[in-house]
Design a protein around this nucleic acid. Structure first.
Lengths: 340, 340
DNA sequence: CAAATTTTGAGGTACGTAAATCAGAAATGA
DNA sequence: TCATTTCTGATTTACGTACCTCAAAATTTG
């Protein structure tokens, strides 16, 4: 049977109240007594029963999620995952609010962040492009004692508590590894399409991609990245223009959103020559895989990201440091053959 | 505030005791009253506070894991994950025992399964080759009222409660998709190395691989599968022999263990012509990726599998049906660029 | 040394649920 | 109708922890 606080009290030769004071860091205990209790905890291998503790504490964690609105399927999927976490929120003692803001609009995000009430919110998770205004607003939240985690795209210049997302450099490298192997010795150009280089995730992917492609696949040359603001129509036009201008394009890497446009631009006839890698499993990218127009989809599981963000913000609110190993978000690769 | 049993009692106009009887399926409640309570639960959206319930119940779930002994890195990794789950076991109210048995020895597994005491064990998870004796022993456990889940490799002929593992047909298809694309239009032979076709996971992978390779990549022809009983030395010799006999082998798929042997057999000089896909991230396969000898590693996260097995067995012990969507184990693909 | 302060002990209540007892009410059968 | 069975209510204890109060003991300070 696992030890309880009563066992600790008996083992240390002190009262329950003293054990409680030590375990919860309350004042009024002599250093020598603290050590006696800690030794007893060590000897018996006591670990707090979290269920019982939460039950007794009755604490709730009010969290705020800030995500871009608009048609981007990935963001809508992310929002769905947050809503699904809200459903479970009572069981997890969290109380989650979602604020949607116009995409690519730093001022809107800053406005939301600046009116967060530290008394009503213990943690904030946000998806934002990397601009100085947003980083500054995040830092102001941190100064108010609110923990902030970036989601999907990081704000490396800010003092955010944590980043919940994939290693986008590694994602770009992976895309390069796949495209390089899919082209298997052939030479030609690779079109890179991005949403916005202000998004740090897009920038990292482009950098990782370029690093591996240039070093390991010298026969392949990058065209772009072309910026499209994640707009499907602009993706379609950008791809058409680039393909017309560069008949020797043998692969395309869309590291941003707007895959619908890519699907529309890919002439069915040209397939077999073209290796295509995109990001995020959505209805459109599933369709692309199924029809053989996309060869691989690199995915981040936004459900994992949302749950990780919640765990991290809760842990921080309790003054704990989250286990970084457990909070790593993996990069998924899907072919049409292993699509879930 | 989320509703409690007290709220349900008030809402339904019955006593706490009756609510408790209904919620826990105890007898002695008229059908009409049951419906009143269930309606109240529905109206208020009551969900049982699992922490409080477990605390009150004080129930523990004694589980038994049966895994093969021997040097197989994947199995040792699996065992490590089980041991790590044992560490957390008190927090999860489980009490886990591990039994190791000689690999490829059905009689040993049967012996272990047949001496399981239904009073002392509520659930069993096992890794076993698909033989009639083992399936029969599993069915005997089921008859005794013990829930059984297969791990990694399924026993489709048995009445096991659940299978915790990846879709191995899809894994084989994925390997074919990767190898086909890596070979990008070249023609030649693909060597398939397996551990034992008695293992249903190996059989499924081989079948999925053949299906896709034959239908989508007509220029590629399968050699094998060669059986090696997952022994690295036998893998090395099998690969050497096959490569000598078939100079036109342009790809290798090892769907079983023993990657060390494959690594030893791959002459560094021949690289660039050879696409190699193997299974399971281990020290050896990491090395193969890092050195560029392996192109891709298909992985199943055995930590996920162990945790899923525990959740499923606990749920079953409580008479619940686990959510199949949540218990799906994903197929991971690793290149050297996205290795964790 | 006495007074002030700090430290400790003892005990209680609460969280939401499980599980039990026992008395009383309602339904059922003859 | 009464006896019997079935159902229901009221109440209590327990799980392990948090947090509170009040008094007693130990220590420090003047």
């Amino acid at each position: 049977m696992r030890p309880t606080v009563h066992d600790i009290a008996a083992e240390a030769g002190v009262s329950l109240a003293t054990v409680d004071r030590v375990l919860n860091g309350r004042p009024g205990v002599r250093q020598k007594t603290v050590e006696k209790v800690e030794a007893a905890v060590e000897r018996l291998g006591y670990v707090r029963d979290v269920s019982a503790a939460n039950l007794a504490r009755g604490r709730v964690y009010p969290l705020l999620f800030v995500v871009p609105e608009g048609p981007n399927s990935f963001m809508r999927g992310l929002e769905a995952e947050i809503r699904s976490a809200m459903q479970r929120s009572s069981a997890e003692r969290t109380s989650i609010t979602i604020e949607t803001v116009p995409p690519f609009d730093p001022a809107a995000i800053v406005a939301v962040l600046d009116q967060v009430d530290p008394a009503a919110v213990t943690g904030v998770a946000l998806v934002a492009a990397d601009t100085p205004e947003v980083s500054a607003a995040v830092d102001r939240l941190i100064d108010k004692g609110i923990h902030v985690t970036t989601l999907v795209s990081d704000l490396p210049g800010s003092r955010r508590t944590h980043f919940c997302g994939i290693d986008n450099l590694a994602a770009g490298r992976t895309a390069a590894g796949l495209i390089g192997r899919f082209c298997a010795g052939r030479s030609g150009k690779v079109l890179v399409v991005a949403g916005s280089m202000a998004l740090s995730d897009h920038m990292d992917r482009a950098a990782g991609f370029a690093a591996i492609l240039n070093s390991e696949f010298p026969g392949l040359e990058i065209v772009g990245p072309v910026e499209t603001n994640d707009d499907a129509d602009r993706v379609r036009e950008a791809v058409r223009t680039a393909m017309a201008a560069n008949p020797d394009i043998i692969a395309i890497y869309n590291l941003g959103a707007g895959n619908r446009g890519l699907l529309e631009a890919l002439p069915q006839a040209d397939r077999g020559r073209l290796a295509v890698v995109v990001h995020e499993v959505t209805d459109v990218s599933r369709k692309g895989l199924a029809e053989g127009l996309f060869d691989a989809v690199i995915n981040q599981d936004c459900g994992h990201e949302v749950r990780s963000a919640i765990r991290v913000l809760k842990a921080r609110a309790d003054g704990l440091v989250p286990l970084s190993a457990q909070e790593r978000i993996r990069i998924d690769i899907f072919l049409k053959d292993n699509l879930p």
